[in-house]
Design a protein around this nucleic acid. Structure first.
Ligand SMILES: [Zn+2]
Ligand SMILES: [Zn+2]
Ligand SMILES: [Zn+2]
Ligand SMILES: [Zn+2]
Lengths: 129, 129
DNA sequence: GGTCGATTTGACAATGATTCCCATCCGCGT
DNA sequence: ACGCGGATGGGAATCATTGTCAAATCGACC
């Protein structure tokens, strides 16, 4: 049977923040944003809810080069990200050719159960000035 | 002027381990391997030397999904990896098309100073049995 | 081989993100 | 309104990695 998560104030608050965010943000950034909104939520709870959302594939998660996990509400379906290093602004991109290439090269070497990670990082036009 | 690193026993030992390794390994795994070889090296020193090697582009580094940094002695030049989840066996792969696609899509959106990460994970033929 | 200064080492403390723990709270079906 | 099991929170714990700094040691020069 499917577990039905409870509709708590905290869960709603985290979801609301993600709705408003442009790009990726860390759990701690989201925690701060919540506090500044007056909708204070415990840090543990922010982590838990973000992870739950990520597990449910309702948000995307990726790790930046500092090792932090960043979260963002994305469109459904498989896609990748073009992320601004400075402000986090994100563009979702698709690359059917890349998908085929990755699967093909893995199969050629006898690998099965294939997955891949692909992220593009850069500095967006505004941040580059 | 170029800094000339000193040729210490510890640096040699770390380099030797990397020579012998098939796939990627974490700093702590390498530290253990060194200990078992009898060439004991302080953990801090292992970290320092691995980072130095990575900075000098003599080894590749990537983060696994547990957040650990893994190191491997690779061929020179830009390439990506097809890594077995079970045993770490790694195949270096190149995808010129992917490189062009990534740069192109980033430029289209006005991003500059572009970099990307791309790793393929799977289960190798042996491990799949 | 011996001297000496600059690097490197290593044991330990410190950091920082994330997870664990657990007493308390509260959404929700009855 | 009641009661229960999931949810919360805040402080401790974890864990990879980095910082500290006195002691060890390269390696250049005599
Ligand atoms: Zn930007
Ligand atoms: Zn893809
Ligand atoms: Zn394998
Ligand atoms: Zn590439």
């Amino acid at each position: 049977m499917v577990v039905t998560p409870r509709n708590t104030r905290q869960r709603r608050a985290v979801a609301a923040i993600l709705e408003d965010l442009e790009g990726f943000a860390s759990a701690q950034e989201i925690h701060d944003l919540l506090r500044h909104r007056g909708e204070s939520v415990g840090l543990s709870t922010v982590y838990r809810n973000l992870q739950a959302l990520a597990d449910a594939a309702e948000v995307d998660a990726l790790r930046n080069d500092e090792g932090e996990t960043l979260y963002r509400q994305c469109s459904t379906g498989h896609h990748h990200h073009l992320v601004c290093r400075a402000c986090g602004r994100t563009v979702e991109v698709e690359g059917p050719t890349v998908e085929r290439w990755a699967d093909g090269v893995a199969a050629q070497h006898g690998y099965v159960d294939i997955a891949h990670t692909l992220e593009i990082f850069g500095t967006c036009g505004d941040c580059a000035r």
